[in-house]
Simulated assay, not measured.
Amino acid sequence: MDPAVAEPEPATRQPVLSLRGISKGFGAVQALTEIDLDVHAGEVVAIVGDNGAGKSTLVKILAGVYSHDTGSVSFDGQPVSIGSPAASRELGIATVFQDLALCDNLDVVSNLFLGREITKGTLDEEEMEKRSWSLLRQLSARIPSVRIAVASLSGGQRQTVAIARSLIGEPRIVILDEPTAALGVAQTAEVLNLIERLRERGLGVILISHNMADVQAVADRVVVLRLGRNNGNFRVPDVSYEEIISAITGATDNVVTRRAEARNTERNAS
């Protein structure tokens, strides 16, 4: 049975990022098999799946940490190669990993511009501070001071700093790996608001999450991975929590497979 799929995007709307037939193996273990994925500007695409579904491997391929074995990657319709993390960033893909990779002993400004410092012979602290506030205001971020040490920030505020840092290079695609993991209710709401701000800025967002409530709150589409393969591509307004879970678990007799069968029957009849 073919996995249920969303209706295709309008032909006039070209995806910013497009993956076709992406496969990746580690010795005898096949982590990904012929993965297809499209991400458009101003769209939040959630990638969900059980542990071992291949989500982390896919993220690391897009981030340039791993190279794929077969398949193709296109950016703005042009074939590209992502051979390293630097190549990924130069292409316009920013990745915020779950561990955030922040320096707790440094302040917000230093974390935002770490490795990208603005200099005029010496460090231009005033300009970096000005740009930091400008960027945080664009995200409607609630940071008390850009000179406060990151160690003293809440989980939601730390996630804010990590996301703001990813925007320094003006990316087209932002990947968020489990951004609300281990956060409380208020902090989760803060991060979800940040994702809304990214969409409003016209960025394509890839959201990796186990939290279906978060996914249904902010995502436009849900792409399900199961055992390293595509197993569903749904528009959020058209799918229920139960349908997503069915696609994740791979149940064979459920509303997902029945919907796919009904659509195939309708197409064949027409």
Rank of each mutant, 00 (worst) to 15 (best):
D2P: 15
V5K: 11
E7D: 14
E9H: 09
P10Q: 08
A11T: 10
P15V: 12
V16L: 13
V16C: 05
R20V: 11
S23K: 02
G25L: 03
G25N: 10
A28P: 15
A53V: 09
G54F: 15
L62P: 13
G64H: 05
S74C: 08
G77A: 13
G83F: 06
P85Q: 12
A86G: 10
A87P: 12
S88P: 07
E90Q: 13
L91Q: 09
G92M: 10
G92Y: 13
I93F: 13
A94S: 15
V108S: 01
L112Y: 00
R116S: 13
E126T: 15
E126F: 04
E127I: 05
W133K: 12
S134H: 11
L135T: 14
L136D: 00
Q138H: 13
S140W: 03
I143R: 01
S145T: 14
A151M: 05
G155Y: 02
G155C: 10
G156A: 11
G156F: 07
Q157M: 10
Q159D: 06
V161T: 04
E170R: 12
I173G: 01
V174Y: 04
L176W: 00
A182L: 05
V185S: 11
L194F: 08
L194K: 09
E196H: 09
E200H: 09
L203R: 06
H210C: 05
D238H: 06
Y241M: 12
A247R: 06
T252G: 01
T257M: 09
E261L: 11
